[in-house]
Design a protein around this nucleic acid. Sequence first.
RNA 1: UCCCCAGUAGCUCAGUUGGCAGAGCAAGUGGCUGUUAACCACUGGGUCCGCGGUUCGAGUCCGUGCUGGGGAGCCA
Length: 460
Amino acid sequence: MKRKKILQLLLAENPIKDVLVKGWVRTRRDSKDFSFLEVNDGSCLKNLQVVVDSSLDNYSEITKLSTGSAIVINGDLIPSKGAGQKWEVLARNIEIVGLAPESYPLQKKRHTDEFLRTIAHLRPRTNKYGAVFRIRSELSYAIHKFFRDRGFKYIHSPIITGSDCEGAGELFKVTTLSLENPPKKEGKVDYSQDFFGSLANLTVSGQLAAEMLALALGDVYTFGPTFRAENSHTSRHVAEFWMVEPEMAFCDLEGNMDLAEDIIKHLTAYIVDECTDDLELFAKFVDKDLMSTLDLVASSVPVRLPYTNALEILKKSGKKFEYDIDFGKDLQTEHERYLVEHHFKKPVIIFNYPKNIKPFYMRLNDDDRTVAAMDVLMPKVGEIIGGSQREERLGVLEKRIHDLSLPKEEYWWYLDSRRYGSVEHSGFGLGFERLLMLMTGINNIRDVIPFPRTPNNIEY
RNA sequence: UCCCCAGUAGCUCAGUUGGCAGAGCAAGUGGCUGUUAACCACUGGGUCCGCGGUUCGAGUCCGUGCUGGGGAGCCA
């Protein structure tokens, strides 16, 4: 007999004779002549109620089944006599596969997120984290579907990279050299003797590679892990996270913002439609405003605001900010929050930032002081997308590299793309975990990743 | 890296002026009931984060370290 998932059974329209179910006991409630088992198999949030009559051979063992135990059930799917559920399974036979002794740390009550982080290997078995990781899966699928439906090609950029081309933060070194006694040359570590023959790092962004592929395949995207060795201690930063990076040839900043708006709206609507039960849990226990936030994100048109206009609004606000607002200074979290949560009360895209606070590859505007950059700011989670139109003019790009004292030799291949058939192109990076935070209302990034990587913590 | 807060039972927390270590939940045992985070009774359970100091006496006061959380910066 083929095993049935609980998701399928609960959607049944008629009773089914002879079903095989496998899962874990969430709770047990005993009566005089029978027991109720709540069984979950991870296929959905809801549990299956299993009724066990005392006439079963191993009934005495079943009445000792504790939370977390794994069982295999044979029985019939019948309409429930109780009020809480439509269907239940009347068990004919129950095989106890793996007992969970009383030391099982998950109790039939709510735990704090802080405690559950200390048992990250078990927390997926809770309702909340089961829901998080199901939505994580659905959202991954929705991203691929979104791009595929629009003719984008999925590309794989390298995880190990040769240099700090991206300039997006501190890097993790990748080496096979002895750390105790590395080979040295003129007092410095001699990376020419290392595995790759030079210094190697974990990627901080797939962008530069994506640009090369976009300039061949047209519209491409990456969706993979990225690494930042920043010593960040916030609820929005981790050392290892996943990023979605579309890159489009023949596309300017306008088109880039169009895609950013489109993808956020599309993915939000998808999750609202497809993950109803799981979202309900978050709306009930995590963030009471979740559904209205998601409605806002899915339905409203984000404000598109040039950086200089943002400065004016902030200056006119009369609000005292901790950080100064002057041209050439980056907007701080307090400024972004003011714009999104108080002034506009909806998503905001800020564009045309000063060139001095943005990387070399962003396209210089005609004013010579701003670049065609854009950040998408969301309620609650803040910056979720950062992108730009890329500098496609060889001379301008070379000058930027020179002005910033970057090692031009290392960019020979990148500059080649501007040397041969260069076209305007644009792209952005979308923080996958930050998107998940937006979708679930969860306010700590460590809680949307199964095993989060943060400074001083590499357990699991 | 900087600022702030916390650390007491498996979990969440209380602990008065420095004077015998507590509650709820969980767990164990028994009972009751087509039950719904079931219910009732009983029982067991402590390195009060570590180290040092003040004191007749420290969970409580002081110093220091560690861990966790919140915020800032960096960014996605």
